[in-house]
Computed example of a mutant assay.
Amino acid sequence: MQLYNTLSAKERAALIKEAGKERLTISFYQYAHIGNTSIFRNHLFIHWDALEVLGRIYVAHEGINAQLSVPADNFDAFKGHLDSISFLQGVRLNIAIEQDNMSFLKLKIKVRHKIVADGLNDASFDVTNKGVHVNAVEFNQLIEDPDTVLVDMRNHYESEIGHFKNAITPDVDTFRDSLDIIENDLADHKEDKKLVMYCTGGIRCEKASAYYKHKGFKQVYQLEGGIIEYARQVENLQLENKFKGKNFVFDHRRGERISEDVIANCHQCGEPCDEHVNCANEACHLLFIQCASCADKMNDCCSDACKTVHELPFEEQKVLRRGKTVSNKIFKKGRSEVLKFKK
């Protein structure tokens, strides 16, 4: 039985367009003990492929982390399948604020060592001793308290386009990098301050809150459901929105607008802009912020060198890419020296 995706993104996009079905973009996670991760992974693929689910899902012995899209008319069947799995019954689903039928174009379910790369030795502390979960109402009240320290647990390229007012936004490339930096910076306030954390959908804060309690922080809180659920509650309950800008998301949309504020700048000309793009040169593919004017001028590329390569015939580009890797450059999102106005 075929247990892997065989269609290209282009082929899948054409099928989605032809089908004309509305799709829902969804994310969820759950920490749980999974014995045989390969069997569980294959079980998910068989059922979800039949439901036309597309997305990026990580399975590990510690649980599951999923970002995906599903046809709206298959949602009930998809939810029913989740509820048939004991540890996923009733799991909170973060449904995107802004929908896009092309948010995912392949179904990729991968077995990983961890569902979030945190670099922590989980055996060294109690991962179940987590911080207090707070909803949007409680969160808004907490972050106005002068005894609160609000920390963004995301990476620099995420917080650059949007964050809560007065939040500490560590200038880091990875979640793991932020853990020690935050602990060191707040070392003098482990007893007297309320440590309040947030991230995209809540998964990073689940582990971080337990880690910081282990490190001696006495009052630890986390925004339940992350920015995605916060935005939903703000809209449904007509609350004051304390998030400024866009929420970076890990699919083809790259961002959801939470407020009309544009707090970032084009990395090439410095004009206000918060649109992330990938360099059109396939040998680069750098993630950076680019305005429409620079996109037109630079032919969707990050530099003159990449523009020159991108304008070559496709076969010549393939020859130049042969034997080379760009993973490190992609990883250093927005850090390239060719970007004059990078953060």
Rank of each mutant, 00 (worst) to 15 (best):
F217R: 12
E183N: 15
K246F: 11
E260I: 13
G80S: 07
S159V: 10
K246V: 01
K21M: 08
V326W: 00
F250N: 01
C205G: 07
R12P: 14
Q141Y: 11
Q317H: 04
A50P: 00
A13K: 14
H276M: 02
V338P: 05
E260Q: 13
A292W: 13
E275L: 10
D300H: 12
H252T: 01
P313K: 13
R321F: 08
I168V: 08
Y58H: 06
N74E: 10
C273Q: 04
P71D: 02
C279F: 10
D177K: 02
A19E: 14
A208N: 08
H43K: 11
S209Q: 03
L15P: 01
S327Q: 13
E18C: 02
K218W: 06
V262M: 00
S84E: 11
I64G: 05
S327V: 14
Y157V: 06
T37P: 01
A96M: 07
R41P: 05
E206L: 15
H252L: 04
E160A: 15
I228Q: 09
Y58I: 00
S303H: 09
L107S: 08
E256H: 12
V116S: 08
L68N: 00
K340G: 01
I95W: 09
F288N: 06
C294D: 12
E138H: 13
G90W: 03
V172I: 12
L7S: 11
C306Y: 09
L186S: 06
Y221A: 03
L54T: 01
K194R: 15
Q233T: 04
K108F: 10
L44K: 09
V338A: 14
G90C: 09
V59C: 08
H276T: 10
T325P: 00
L312C: 10
K342D: 10
D122C: 15
M153K: 04
E271C: 02
H43L: 14
Q268T: 07
V149H: 04
E11V: 06
F139H: 03
A283S: 01
I161N: 10
L287D: 04
